[in-house]
Simulated assay, not measured.
Amino acid sequence: MTGLLLLGMAQLIATDYQEPPEVLPPKVAPIHLPEMKRTVERVDPIRKPQQLPPPVKPQPVERTLEPAQVPIIVGPPVVTQQTIDPGIVSSDPLPFYKPAPRYPSRALAQGIEGYVVVEFTITRSGSVRDPRVVGGYDSAGAPTEVFNRSALNAVERFKYRPTLVDGNPVEKQGVRNRITFKLAE
């Protein structure tokens, strides 16, 4: 084995090994940058305020005070025999679970903010039924539909304490809610 290696090395030394021809890199045209000019921010001059209203004249304050006699009566609390009938209690619906809507990726990519007004029915069990979009608007007040689906998905998960009439839960229709979409700062 050693003999073969020595023979192979001798053969390599005996051959006239030449360096490969040098390949020059391609020529690159010179790059000319345009002349850079400084940009100056235009600042509008500060406007003088309109004519100020006349200063308010101070009112004189009377600094003398006469002590008054206030009768103080301390006694035990009075207990009455009145009871409240729980069947007469009435109340409006009260939200107790309102998850935040998911910000639509299309609106996030475009930097759009806005709000959606949604109308729905609160059932006797406190869940939401039949949500529908009344209107969706961007921050400039222009109508948009980019937030509608996300707002409806959030409203479907809302939970309320239902409306009580004479102590019994009832459905409440036409409940409106404004859902705002604002980018984090």
Results as ranks from 00 to 15, higher is better:
V56E: 02
V56W: 09
V56Y: 11
P58M: 02
P58I: 01
Q59E: 10
Q59G: 10
Q59P: 06
Q59I: 10
P60K: 03
P60M: 00
E62A: 09
R63I: 01
T64Q: 03
T64L: 00
T64H: 08
T64E: 01
T64P: 04
L65H: 12
E66N: 12
E66Q: 15
P67D: 05
Q69K: 13
V70A: 09
V70H: 14
P71C: 02
I73R: 10
V74C: 06
G75R: 15
P77R: 07
V79R: 13
V79D: 12
Q81S: 10
Q81R: 13
Q82S: 08
T83V: 12
D85K: 04
P86A: 03
P86I: 00
I88T: 14
V89M: 01
P93S: 05
L94T: 15
F96Y: 15
F96S: 11
F96R: 08
K98S: 08
K98G: 06
P99H: 11
P99R: 06
P99A: 06
A100E: 09
A100I: 07
Y103W: 13
P104T: 00
S105N: 08
A107E: 00
A109Y: 09
G111V: 00
G111F: 05
I112D: 03
E113Q: 12
E113G: 05
Y115H: 15
V116G: 13
V116M: 04
V117P: 07
V118R: 00
E119F: 10
F120V: 01
F120H: 15
T121R: 09
I122E: 02
R124D: 08
S125D: 15
G126P: 06
G126I: 01
V128N: 07
V128Q: 07
R129G: 14
D130K: 10
P131W: 12
P131L: 00
R132V: 02
V133F: 10
G136I: 00
Y137G: 06
D138I: 02
